[in-house]
Design a protein around this nucleic acid. Structure first.
Lengths: 220, 220
DNA sequence: CTTGTGTCAATTGTCGACAATAATCAATTT
DNA sequence: AAATTGATTATTGTCGACAATTGACACAAG
């Protein structure tokens, strides 16, 4: 009947704001994050800021060294390669699990999300396209039914988003991106495990190579 | 010339002690962890205890709900299944990467670790056997060369260790466990990707099924 | 006996303060 | 001029304190 009242939860709010600031590029890689400055900006004490930073550290978005403080993580092209490489492994595995248990309804949701990619290729912003693409892949992972895997995937997503933001553009033509999801859906529909594996490996592998390449070209 | 002086780093020390206490069964699943009690035991204030608990939460060893505090995570058999399932995916992927880049020296280290399993099957404690087995698999992941993957693997290891401790015994004859590593090494030596994948899937799959079964039998 | 209400103790979330450490920069020496 | 030393400042690590919230318990009402 009633909706839950919004819980203040300073730590979460602070963490989210920092995440967005990093993803939007307002906070640059390597930038120092002093607790005092942040706490003043948020109008809180240092304690919740510290906890938020620790949380973000566990997600890999910031790094810290003892007695020196926190810094926005500087992604190297090697880091990005590792992240995408790991994503390939996890997503293939999740898809493998999804293959065995996906329902018609869930498949329909994936199909709809893929259709959305075509729409956005016509009239969407880059940010919308990235988000829609990410949503598709996250749904696939979720349908694998492994909660622990999904948690790791979400952590990776934060890092990928940070990396992509730095690049500032898509690595490919949005129409092409939309189309490359078709083999994935097809293999899923046909319960063809090998094809599904290959489709994902190719699809994400292309993204990995392009993102790493663009990142290197930027001089990282 | 000089050896490094021991860094205090309260948070790390506290976290490690709690990890061990959980892994050893001194802290039981579902048990409440009040900050005040812990800080008194450690002789510190609540601040570093809080941070240690948050760290452990990110590793999945404890859970927290706002305003209610921290509790030792209660693993369900579903959780354990998810964890092992994820481990299969990650380790197969890591092995896949290792296949392409492993050096003779690294292979030798794996061989030596496998030999150690045979030794310990004769005269080692259960704890030693578990640790040696885990070390073998961690080495394999490390040789994949993906730092991000290894970090996730280490987080998973903490949870697996907690689960195994709860069970309190090995899921199989230690000789058998030692032997089942042979196909993995063989596939690695022959650079046979498919065989390697299957060997790992089988090897860890057996562990998963047995661990989950034992866990269920205990009434979880 | 069950249900609901009010009170109280325990615990968390947050805060400001202080000491220890690291970075910065000027002064001194080679 | 370059390098080392020393003083200064900024920042973190840690602490104890307080207010807000939760859960437990006793008590009253039906």
């Amino acid at each position: 009947m009633f909706s839950a009242l919004e819980t203040t939860d300073l730590v979460q709010q602070i963490a989210r704001q920092i995440i967005n600031a990093v993803a939007d590029g307002q906070l640059k890689p390597g930038e120092r994050l002093t607790e005092l400055r942040l706490s003043k900006e948020f109008g809180t004490s240092r304690a919740p800021v510290r906890e938020a930073l620790r949380l973000l550290e566990s997600q890999g978005l910031v790094v810290s060294s003892p007695r020196r403080g926190f810094f926005v993580r500087t992604l190297t092209s090697d880091d990005l390669r590792d992240i995408y490489e790991l994503r390939i492994g996890m997503e293939i595995h999740a898809a493998d699990l999804a293959l065995q248990r996906i329902s018609d309804r869930e498949f329909g949701l994936l199909r709809a999300q893929a259709d959305k990619l075509y729409e956005l290729a016509e009239e969407g912003s880059i940010g919308e396209q990235i988000f829609a693409d990410f949503t598709f892949h996250r749904m696939l992972c979720a349908f694998g039914g492994n909660a622990r895997l999904l948690k790791v995937y979400d952590d990776l997503a934060v890092e990928m988003r940070a990396g992509i933001t730095l690049i500032g553009k898509l690595y490919d033509d949005p129409h092409k991106i939309a189309e490359t999801h078709e083999p994935i859906l097809e293999a899923l529909k046909n319960k063809d495990r090998a094809k599904l594996r290959e489709a994902l490996r190719y699809h994400i592998g292309v993204a990995r190579d392009e993102v790493v390449k663009l990142f290197k070209d930027m001089g990282a």
